[in-house]
Simulated scan of single mutants.
Amino acid sequence: MEIVDGIRHIIDNGAKWWALPADFPPWETVYGFFCRWNRDGGVTHIRGRLRRRIRTGKGRCPHPVTLIVDSQSVKGASTVGRNSRGYDAAKKINGRKRLITVDTLGLPVMITVTAADIQDRDAARDVFWRLRLTQPQTTQVWAAHGCAGDLVDWARERLWLSLRIVSRPKGTKGFVVLPRRWKAERTIGCA
């Protein structure tokens, strides 16, 4: 239990592994368990079980059939290698892009990190393919305008997913809460 508490402390506080307080087991031990569990799929399994428990506790089906995908470009630190980052011209950010997939409660289902210069529709194609493999019950995905175009037809024809595009209302400026997408944006804001 102390190992799990140590991992939760790092995740909750965003601290470096070596800064784990002395109340916990040695940081190398906690980090070693985390790496092993992550590599073996244990972290994904635990996240899925927690999501199912929360969903059933709220009277929802344990496996979501509708998901929401959104992205955010974030500035890359100086320690981020050039081969894993890019320049997002639309956001004027040199760094990485994270695509987050959440259920209708805003609970994370899948998180993908790419270079910021990868277009949303290109990264989403890989995400939708992986979703079909890992979340076969999913029938509908809500996404931003960056996923519009031929990706809608591709998702329907190849993956049997109904891809719904949520666009900003015409003439709006600044931040606008968009139906459905705000669940993913809220989750991104907490990351």
Rank of each mutant, 00 (worst) to 15 (best):
G76M: 05
G57M: 08
L107A: 02
F33S: 07
R55E: 05
G41F: 10
G95V: 00
R49H: 10
Q72M: 11
G59W: 02
L67C: 05
R36Q: 14
A90S: 14
D88F: 05
H63K: 12
N83I: 11
R49I: 09
P108D: 09
D103V: 02
G81R: 14
L107G: 04
L50M: 10
I93L: 09
T101V: 13
K97Q: 05
M110N: 11
A77K: 13
Y31C: 03
V102S: 02
T66Q: 09
S84R: 15
D40A: 15
R47D: 03
V74P: 01
G59L: 10
I93P: 01
T44A: 15
L105G: 13
K91F: 04
L50K: 06
R82C: 11
N38C: 11
C35E: 15
R60V: 06
T79P: 07
R53E: 11
K92Q: 09
L50G: 04
G106P: 01
C61I: 11
K58P: 04
G95C: 02
V109H: 01
K58T: 05
T66V: 15
G42K: 05
G42E: 06
T56G: 06
V74K: 01
G42C: 12
A89N: 07
A89V: 13
S78A: 13
Q72P: 05
G42D: 06
K97F: 03
F34H: 06
W37N: 04
T101N: 08
I54R: 06
T56Q: 10
G32V: 04
V43E: 01
G86R: 07
R49T: 07
R60M: 08
C61S: 15
T66F: 09
